[in-house]
């Protein structure tokens, strides 16, 4: 287990999260969903759909979006915002990839 600070924290090797999949990173303040999006980048957002709290990490990933598994809201991974007509937003986190590993910056969390 890793200790959370304001710094970048390594969460996994890149190959653990293949393209178009999502995984859960558990923190003591709640789950974060980490995605390997269609554009090749990694994104991290709160793992709680703004609709009714659905686990976004379990949704189908397409381009830079994920479709929530519970009622099909579509969330933008870059902004955390729900696509129209739905309205809502989840927190986003900074992610970087270095030397084949994915790092998360949890900031104030």
């Amino acid at each position: 287990m890793t200790t959370v600070t304001d710094e970048w924290v390594k969460v996994a090797e890149v190959n653990k999260v293949p393209p178009l999949t999502g995984r859960v990173v558990r923190t003591k303040h709640g789950d974060i969903a980490l995605f390997h999006a269609g554009d090749g980048n990694f994104y991290a957002i709160d793992n709680k759909c703004p609709h009714k709290g659905g686990p976004l990490s379990e949704g189908i990933v397409h381009d830079c979006h994920v479709t929530c598994p519970l009622h099909n809201w579509v969330l933008n991974l870059k902004t955390g915002e729900a696509e129209a007509p739905d309205e809502g937003k989840v927190a986003t986190y900074e992610v970087k990839v270095e030397d084949g590993a994915v790092y998360l910056k949890l900031g104030g969390v």
Partner: peptide, 9 residues
């Protein structure tokens, strides 16, 4: 894959 990717405390 059924487990969390990481657990940060």
């Amino acid at each position: 894959e059924f487990k969390p990717l990481a657990e940060l405390v």
